[in-house]
């Protein structure tokens, strides 16, 4: 096969530039194979993060020809002919070359209020299969953080990072909020501190998700509806004026104690 020219961003927090590498390729290879070949032959100090090479660990996120992709799941023969450009994720601070500091996400993870189930009755609870499946879609997340990378709310507005959980965590919130046994109420938090309203449903996150999670449709929009229901429904507003708002208890929700 013909050699390919790779245009790769090299540098660190102080700055950097593109470097071109012309390198051999074989049938069926992915971008990560080519990066490894550049490391092995021309640039042993080219930094990139990777682990499983099977699209399951979420480590090798980068921007390939400007689009967030997993390097291990992007086949060279799927890319248009010509030079392939690889840059680090733009939303996160650079450590070196293709490696970024994604700790913003870990800080956001710490702020997620945990599942709060009611006391367990004898014999536990039995969960309906449809409730299991609803949460399982969000559990497919491999934390590649490409949805966070592509989201313009933080990609183009650094100042929003203190007040925006981002798509990855909106699916986590959705999973918890939709869990039939959960009694925590995160709606106020989502509205006031985690910027749910900043999302204007451009679906970029859904488009880049390597696990094909319907982030916008199945998580963000239902969350927005819940927040809106709580806040702008006149009956609920009146009810809140009269008594403190409480979420449905598990006993009232769809889950029934196991026989």
């Amino acid at each position: 096969m013909a050699d390919v020219t790779m245009r790769i961003w090299r540098g660190d927090a102080t700055g950097g530039d593109f470097e071109n590498y012309t390198i051999s390729q074989n049938e069926g290879e992915v971008v990560l194979d080519i990066i490894h070949r550049i490391q092995a032959t021309e640039a042993p100090d080219l930094a990139c993060r990777w682990n499983c090479k099977a699209g399951k660990c979420g480590s090798c996120s980068a921007e390939i020809n400007g689009k967030p992709r997993l390097m291990c799941m992007t086949r060279m023969d799927d890319l248009p002919e010509g030079t392939v450009t690889v840059t680090p994720m733009k939303t996160f601070p650079i450590i070196r070359d293709l490696v970024t500091d994604v700790s913003f996400n870990f800080e956001m993870a710490k702020r997620v209020p945990a599942l709060l189930p009611p006391p367990m009755p004898e014999g536990g609870y039995r969960m309906f299969q449809q409730d299991v499946e609803r949460g399982q879609e969000f559990r497919k997340c491999i934390e590649c953080f490409m949805c966070q990378d592509v989201c313009h709310v933080i990609r183009d507005h650094e100042e929003n990072k203190v007040n925006y959980a981002g798509p990855r965590f909106f699916i986590r919130y959705a999973e918890l909020e939709m869990h039939p046994l959960d009694t925590n109420d995160r709606r106020e938090l989502l509205k006031e501190e985690l910027g749910l309203g900043y999302c204007n449903i451009t679906k970029c996150c859904t488009e880049v998700c390597p696990e094909h999670i319907h982030i916008t449709d199945n998580a963000i929009i239902p969350l927005k509806e819940r927040v809106v229901d709580a806040d702008y429904d006149p009956v609920a507003w009146l009810g809140r004026k009269i008594r403190r708002r409480t979420k449905k208890t598990a006993a009232e929700a769809s889950v029934q104690p196991a026989p």
Binding site: Q39, P44, D45, L46, A47, C48, I95, R96, D97, V99
Partner: peptide, 14 residues
């Protein structure tokens, strides 16, 4: 022998 610096240098790590 490897080139580069000590920060996140895969060649040196290897």
């Amino acid at each position: 022998s490897v080139k580069g610096a000590r920060a996140y240098n895969p060649g040196w790590n290897l």
